[in-house]
Design a protein around this nucleic acid. Structure first.
Lengths: 200, 200
DNA sequence: CACATCACCGACCGCAAGTCAATGACCTGC
DNA sequence: GCAGGTCATTGACTTGCGGTCGGTGATGTG
């Protein structure tokens, strides 16, 4: 990697980090692209070299952990309840780690229909249930769940729970601790939902 | 009511209805205030006579049913599970009746922190759990739930479920039927959640 | 009939997103 | 080490939209 390329990467990172802290401080709608570029000493044009749209900045933080939580949960040892609890914990960690404003903006963007104009930088997280179904299919193959398990339906139910936690967290102004929620869910609700499909 | 006042009401209604259909067709962000006013033959200024902000138009449709679903569910006869199922059904009905785009925009707005600038026309629905706690307290007083029921926690759990369904619906592009979800939830999950607190 | 009211108008303002031709620092191959 | 090309960066500019406000004329009122 040349010095030039290294600098470019640093610029991109600087823009991203400045944007995150400004958004968290003032709210996404109250931060302009020029606010961001002024704050980190680059020009407006530079921003648009690295991000197609202002909104794309919020997808940056999700890029890694979305593939990562998937991999980690797959590798996680334990019962299917433990595996799922781990996945839930990871999802909430990823969604909340940037703070409420970033999460809110992520939700605002991610609920857009798929044919929305403007390609998402870094790939859109869309409602294909991909992560969750793959994860549950692993559990079926691994002998943790019965072959007859309605993977798609379960995936759907679990994603629904995750979106509920995420949205509640956004709206409750960070008053609740995701770990506690996930803990309660794993203890009270998960076993009942999985009971019919578990291999004894 | 004078003829003048009647006309004014009609104008307001016309703006509201035109806005809804345009938003549903093209998406909230792709419809300008001028698109709306042009489509219904009034001027831009007139829009701002009736709505403080462009965003306020989406709160219009929620005004009635938010108080209404509360009242109706309170009056609904049956077990606590039946009452709750009724409330869930009503909530989802209200949230989805205007179509996915209106619902999406409602979510985008409603997740704003409370100190967001711009007063919401028609009152903001905020995360005070108000509807749900009142409803559960009724059930405690009515002898359907034990006195020791952690009303606030349960309200929180149930709102979380509702937000999950709502968000999933927005993201799944109307693929799922809210009634079926609520039916499944009421059958599979609700009884387990309520079991410890129900009066036999 | 004259005056007041008020629903409605649309030109105007300010701001922010996104564009693009120009620049010059850096890289590369001879 | 130099010449020529590449590419990260710039910031003035365009575009479009949200929101305002002084004006107007139809409607209601005394």
């Amino acid at each position: 990697m040349t010095k030039r390329q290294k600098n470019a990467l640093e610029t991109r990172q600087k823009i991203y980090e400045t944007a995150c802290s400004l958004i968290e401080e003032k709210g996404f709608a109250n931060v302009s692209v020029e606010d961001i570029t002024r704050a980190c000493g680059v020009s407006k044009g530079t921003f648009y070299v690295y991000f197609k749209r202002k909104e794309d900045i919020v997808f940056e933080c999700c890029k890694e952990w979305f593939s990562d939580v998937d991999r980690k949960a797959r590798e996680h040892k334990g019962t299917i309840v433990e595996k799922l609890a781990f996945y839930f914990k990871g999802f909430m960690e990823g969604v909340t780690c940037g703070g409420a404003e970033l999460c809110r903006q992520w939700v605002r963007e991610v609920i857009n229909p798929n044919d929305s104009p403007g390609e998402m930088c870094g790939g859109k997280y869309n409602y294909d249930l991909g992560h969750m179904t793959a994860f549950l299919e692993d559990a079926v193959k691994g002998g943790l769940l019965k072959k007859s398990t309605p993977v798609k339906t379960l995936a759907h139910i679990f994603m629904c729970e995750l979106y509920g936690m995420m949205t509640s967290w956004c709206m409750s102004d960070e008053k609740f601790v995701p770990d506690e929620w996930v803990g309660r869910f794993a203890k009270v609700q998960l076993p009942n939902l999985l009971a019919p499909y578990r291999v004894k």
